[in-house]
Design a protein around this nucleic acid. Structure first.
Lengths: 164, 164
DNA sequence: CCACTCTGCTTGCAATTGCAAACGAAATGG
DNA sequence: CCATTTCGTTTGCAATTGCAAGCAGAGTGG
């Protein structure tokens, strides 16, 4: 049934291995997996688990993410915005906090775009056409955030926020 | 090695799920895995494959990398997703906006740390009031975020995850 | 020619994944 | 009180992972 449709990952591993000029058995030993299994992985007959994938990545001295992307386990275009990505990847926030933070960030971006239109004679034609009036731009939010930012009393942001 | 010592990943998934306030079955359906299996994963009795992990990440609306890091499948330094760094590096924000975002982010972190101290005792939450059980936010911030967060329940305006 | 070593591949088999079905507990309602 | 729903969990089972053992071919050299 679930036969080899995982070819790309295997091919990729084999490419990387041959490029490193090491034998299948050598890589198998370096990665801590058996040679027959690695053989089957490279030919797309088996679908390796994440753990095996990680060990193979180490054996190949390549980033594990490269393998995961090849295996389709990570969206390659997982970068709509660096800030959004970072927020989504933050393990110390709740789901709700993430949503709120992202929404605030996007409303900030809109605000800034609106402000930039006055200084820039060339407006960006938004072919995407997000419904402008549908967006609930939080006026109350903005009104509340301004005094909040002022009330923090730090004209210069404290740049050391280290934690253990 | 009968029992795999993968407890942390399961605990992390359970934490994220409870913070998102969805049931085990709901997440299982959203992730496309069976509920008993998800239950076993959360309790560390089973070691999910990368594919399952990826689906769970989607169901939780978190980055797959976050899960892989927790599972020990990716080195921490491979994910440079630091929210503060990303905000500071964003050229599409004004300095003021950056500062406010960072402040909000840090207050969220503090908030969650305070809330995490009692996550183990999670009674059955009645879903009649969504924004009632939130913790202590700065007054002005909370007053502004409450109605705003309520509107972000399901229909996000700009970007929505396409599922289907 | 035969022994040795390297290459990758095929074959069973134990262990594990992942799921369908079913179970007890707690809440809602007739 | 009992039916119903929802919650997380337990129980068997098919399918798969991953490995030890063994196979065939290509060098190398005594």
């Amino acid at each position: 049934m679930a036969l080899p449709k995982v070819g790309s990952i295997g091919e990729y591993i084999r490419e990387q291995r041959q490029q490193a000029k090491i034998s299948l058995r050598q890589l198998a030993a370096a990665a801590g997996v058996s040679n027959p299994y690695l053989s089957q992985i490279e030919r797309g007959l088996r679908k390796p688990s994440a753990e095996i994938l990680n060990q193979i990545a180490k054996g190949l001295h390549i980033s594990a993410q490269a393998l995961y992307v090849q295996a389709g386990l990570i969206e390659d275009r997982e970068t709509p915005s660096d800030v959004v990505t970072a927020i989504r990847a933050d393990t110390h926030l709740t789901e709700r906090q993430r949503q709120v933070l992202i929404d605030i960030y996007e409303s900030f971006r809109k605000e800034k775009r609106a402000g930039d239109e006055q200084t820039s004679q060339n407006a960006h034609p938004r072919s995407d056409s997000v419904a402008d009036d549908e967006q609930s731009l939080p006026e109350e939010l903005r009104a509340a955030l301004e005094p909040y930012a002022a009330s923090t009393g730090n004209g210069t942001v404290n740049q050391e926020t280290k934690e253990g």
